[in-house]
Design a protein around this nucleic acid. Structure first.
Length: 605
RNA sequence: GUCCCUGUAGUUCAAUGGAUAGAACAGCAGUUUCCUAAACUGCUGAUUUGGGUUCGAUUCCCAGCGGGGAUACCA
């Protein structure tokens, strides 16, 4: 059915007939013809020269001639150097468009009960501060990759592991006790996560004051720069007190636990708002306070089996030097767990809860080493998917003046960013006069969809592995390769389709096979037909940007088409039919593509 | 020190080993009796350096230079 496949096998047959050799798919490089040349598909004949034993031009000429004579889908051909450009017959295009139009959710594959079960972990916040731009990238990538994998035919379980315990929480708790005067989200009017974040910052401010005082003192006592700094950081009363609090927490001290619980609830309420605004959700949430003990047990088990070793001071280690890595700590000498221990525990709980075939961790690239180690450890401990767990490793978001540091206040807050995007979208819409005849609710909804679309697309169109730059003043644009550009084209197509309906034009979803198809229309149909392959590629490479860039290219091509031809005003009925069906399919695919990225599209804007 | 990622127009990003390296933004010049001008058209402008593999290298390999990260009894 698919033209690419038809021609590919025809090429194979041509080579076999002409030169008497079987060729594999690797030697038959069939690609889309570049814009400057005539044709739709191009066969690169260089790899075939060894078989044909002829010059590139002659080889291409012979194969082209054979195809034109024997393959009805090939209408004509031309040869430029080693490139054989093939033009596909008109009827093939109308047939292809009809196939696309009659397939629901063209490009996606529905998961079945037998499909692989993939678990995706993303977000994974600490509960001591609000979400920032880095988390936004994580959440959007996690959501998008979930949708893409599902669209490619996998069963997907989305999970979140909340880092709800540890020294960082104690810092906020201590600061709140010390300076909070009983402040709550209700009394202060602040979102819970922001309230707690403020106390985290307060802790750090006071802590640094203590450190600098002590530092001066130790230096006066004759310690050198480095030793004085290290000692001051360790001996500052505030940090010692925070550590004491952590110990109390581990010992289940009722007062500490109650405070911890109360403050975490505030934070969760705040996070939920942010998640909702971003449009992300989870099927199952794990809490580190539940998993760390499981991890400790699992490590003890590994110790029994002789996988790990205990040092004299009581600490437990995994020796990964045979694998070319270092020794890795799993339990501290005081018996408490570390990050790695908790991830092992979480893995066990997950495996108990779901029969997963594959595990994907959406975590920043600063933790590449951690996941390399985790993979080896899980494999040793007998988790089937441990060895080929996927660390979906994404790059940092950088600001024009460097990295984001929460303690230095150089962060871009998620909530603030979202509301700024929305209000910018609103302002732009107003300036362009888009809101003229809309209700207040409709205005709100469109500003929200467009503002978030701009943000999401901006973060998703970039190769996830790469660090990216975010300039708060300039970065987010509404023109060019942006979310709103795509949304706008979608809305305009929908408007045309509405108008067609109002005019009583019933264009159905099938075009007559004999309808003439011009070059721009052929190119658009060809573009649409690539969508299934694009989804599969995005899924196997874990690459949302592939879909984002595909949608942009498609929309850009449609815009040129839209500008050059009339649709409703077309006098030839068959032709009008073709253009309407084509437009509708472009909008359908754009909508599906955007859905896979977690971006909404408006019916009007 | 060792390991990993990364280097493309002024800027932000593209390019399964294929043709003259694509867009967008910024800049300059145009297009609206026509279905939404958040659009369309034109001009200017780039592969960090040196080797290697190949018919062909932005892409693969080696070395140098630049940027980021990891190597914590932090998470």
């Amino acid at each position: 059915m698919d033209i690419q496949n038809v021609i590919q096998s025809a090429c194979a047959k041509a080579v076999e007939t002409l030169y008497g050799a079987q060729v594999g798919a690797e030697q038959l490089q069939l690609q889309k013809t570049k814009k400057e040349f005539e044709g739709h598909l191009t066969l690169v004949v260089f790899p075939l020269l060894r078989i044909s034993r002829k010059k590139p031009e002659d080889t291409a000429q012979e194969i082209g001639q054979w195809l034109a004579d024997n393959e009805p889908a090939v209408e004509k051909f031309n040869v430029i150097k080693g490139f054989l450009n093939l033009s596909v017959a008109t009827t093939s295009w109308t047939r292809l468009l009809n196939t696309i139009a009659q397939t629901a959710d063209y490009g996606t594959v529905k998961p079945t009960a037998q499909s692989p079960l993939v678990m995706i972990e993303y977000s994974s916040p600490n509960t001591n501060k609000p979400l920032h731009l880095g988390h936004v990238r994580n959440n959007l990538l996690g959501w998008a990759i979930s949708q893409i994998l599902e669209g490619a035919g996998n069963r997907v379980v989305k999970t979140n592991i909340v880092n709800d315990r540890g020294i960082h929480i104690c810092k906020s708790m201590l600061a709140w006790q010390r300076w909070g005067k009983g402040e709550t989200p209700e009394s202060s009017g602040k979102k819970g996560d922001h309230l707690i974040g403020d106390y985290y910052v307060a802790f750090d401010k006071h802590y640094r004051e203590e450190v600098s005082t002590l530092f001066a003192q130790y230096k006066a006592e004759g310690l050198d720069e480095e030793a004085a700094k290290a000692k001051a950081e360790k001996e500052a009363p505030l940090i010692k007190e925070a550590h004491e609090m952590l110990v109390k927490w581990e010992q289940n001290d009722p007062e500490v636990r109650a405070l911890w619980k109360k403050m975490n609830e505030w934070v969760y309420a705040g996070f939920d708002e942010t998640y909702k605004a971003l449009g992300v959700s989870f099927d199952k949430i794990y809490y580190e306070s539940d998993t760390y003990l499981v991890g400790k047990a699992k490590v003890e088990e590994g110790l029994q089996k002789g996988l790990f070793t205990r040092h004299d001071d009581g600490s437990v280690w995994a020796d990964l030097r045979p694998e070319g890595l270092d020794e890795k700590l799993l339990l501290r000498s005081d018996g408490t767990s570390v990050y790695m221990t908790q991830d092992i525990g979480t893995a066990k709980l997950r495996f108990d809860d779901y029969p997963i075939n594959k595990m994907v961790y959406v975590v920043g690239n600063e933790q590449n080493y951690h996941f390399k180690v985790l993979s080896i450890l899980l494999d040793k401990l007998g988790f089937e998917w441990g060895k080929d767990l996927v660390h979906f490793s994404y790059g940092m978001v950088e600001l024009p003046n460097g990295k984001m540091k929460s303690r230095e206040g150089t962060v871009v807050d998620a909530d603030e960013l979202i509301s700024e995007m929305i209000s910018t979208a609103r302002q732009t819409s107003e300036e362009l006069g888009k809101f003229a005849d809309m209700s207040a609710e409709e205005k709100d909804e469109i500003a929200r969809i467009v503002g978030l679309g701009a943000l999401k697309y901006f973060l998703l169109k970039v190769d996830a592995r790469k660090n990216m730059l975010f300039n708060p003043e300039e970065s987010i644009d509404f023109n060019g390769n942006t979310g709103p550009f795509i949304q706008y084209t979608y809305a305009r197509i929908r408007s045309v389709l509405r108008k067609a309906k109002e005019a009583g034009i019933d264009f159905g979803s099938e075009v007559s096979k004999s309808t003439p198809v011009n070059e721009k229309e052929q190119n658009l149909i060809q573009h649409l037909a690539e969508f299934p392959a694009v989804i599969q590629q995005a899924a196997t490479e874990y690459s949302p940007s592939t879909i984002a860039n595909y949608c942009y290219d498609l929309v850009k091509e449609y815009n040129q088409f839209y500008h050059d031809y009339t649709i409703l005003g077309e006098s030839n009925e068959e032709k009008r039919q073709l253009r309407l069906v084509l437009s509708e399919q472009v909008s359908n695919i754009v909508r599906t593509g955007m859905r896979l990225l977690g971006i909404e599209v408006p019916e009007r804007m």
